[in-house]
């Protein structure tokens, strides 16, 4: 069993080493690392993140998934739009 009080001391010690800037940096790096969107049936998912350049410009939608509600955790595709 994990001692929660001891673990909390470790967490506090960890957070003592963090500043808003270091945590923000971690968060932004994590977000970049996990940039992913999903394509629905006959349409593109519009990510709030704007890509400055994109070389992939399909001329028509491609049906990769059968359902817009697909939640399969092993399907991850990069944003192509």
């Amino acid at each position: 069993m994990v001692d929660l009080k001891e673990l909390e001391k470790e967490i506090d010690a960890l957070l003592e080493t963090e500043t808003p800037e270091t945590l923000k940096k971690w968060l932004l790096e994590y977000r970049n690392e996990n940039l992913e969107t999903y394509m629905g049936l006959g349409s593109y998912f519009r990510s709030p993140l704007k890509l400055e350049t994109c070389t992939i410009q399909p001329t028509k939608p491609q049906n990769i998934f059968d359902s817009t509600n697909d939640d399969s955790c092993d399907h991850k595709y990069a944003n192509a739009a």
Partner: peptide
């Protein structure tokens, strides 16, 4: 409690995790 601690620091950085 732990979640709130990290959230607080990130909010100070202007981020909404």
């Amino acid at each position: 409690k732990q979640i709130e601690k990290v959230k607080k620091i990130l909010l100070m950085a202007g981020e909404k995790p």
